[in-house]
Simulated scan of single mutants.
Amino acid sequence: MDTDAVIAAIADPSRRRILDALRARDGQSVGELTEVLAPLGRHAVLKHVGVLEQAGLVVSRKQGRVRRCHLNAVPIVELAQRWIDDFGARASAGLLSLKTELEGPRE
């Protein structure tokens, strides 16, 4: 895993929105992702998808004329595991669960 590429890829808010959209509904087309990033055009979205692909966060496949994008969360999990030991992960998971319960569901 290229840690720098993953960090650089998720540093951009537009790319995080793409990842969030794929997390909500995997296998979206580039056209559908362009709607999610409405002010950006198709070419800008394609560039963002390319950066995410190079970082290993997105895998895309062509189906006819449609390019479908799929989330690959493995690099993010590897990045998290790099800095969080097993105890810290369990404690953090408990705190996040409590936070979610107290604050309600995220949008």
Rank of each mutant, 00 (worst) to 15 (best):
L40T: 03
N72R: 10
E35Y: 10
A38G: 02
R25H: 14
E53L: 13
G27Y: 05
T3K: 13
S60P: 02
L37C: 04
I7G: 12
L79P: 10
L57A: 15
A89P: 01
R90Q: 03
V36P: 10
R15V: 08
H70D: 04
L79H: 02
K99C: 06
L96T: 11
V49T: 06
A21P: 10
L102D: 00
P105V: 02
H48V: 08
A9W: 00
R68V: 01
P75W: 06
S97W: 02
T100I: 08
L95S: 08
D26P: 04
R17M: 07
V77G: 00
D12Q: 08
S29T: 15
T3P: 10
D20M: 15
A44L: 06
V77I: 09
E107K: 13
E107L: 12
L95F: 10
Q54S: 14
M1K: 01
V6E: 12
N72G: 04
R65M: 04
V6D: 02
R90V: 15
T34E: 13
R23A: 10
P13F: 05
A55S: 10
R65L: 11
L98V: 05
E78T: 00
A9R: 03
W83E: 15
S60K: 00
L22N: 11
A38Q: 07
G31Q: 03
Q63E: 04
L19A: 05
G104I: 06
S92I: 06
G41S: 06
Q28L: 09
A55K: 07
P13E: 14
G50A: 11
A44Q: 14
R16M: 12
V36A: 04
P105R: 02
R17K: 08
G27N: 07
E103C: 09
R17F: 10
L37A: 08
S92M: 13
S92A: 15
L96V: 15
E107M: 11
L46Y: 09
G64E: 03
R65W: 07
R67F: 08
V30E: 06
P75Y: 07
A11Y: 12
A5R: 14
Q54H: 15
R65D: 02
R25K: 07
R68I: 01
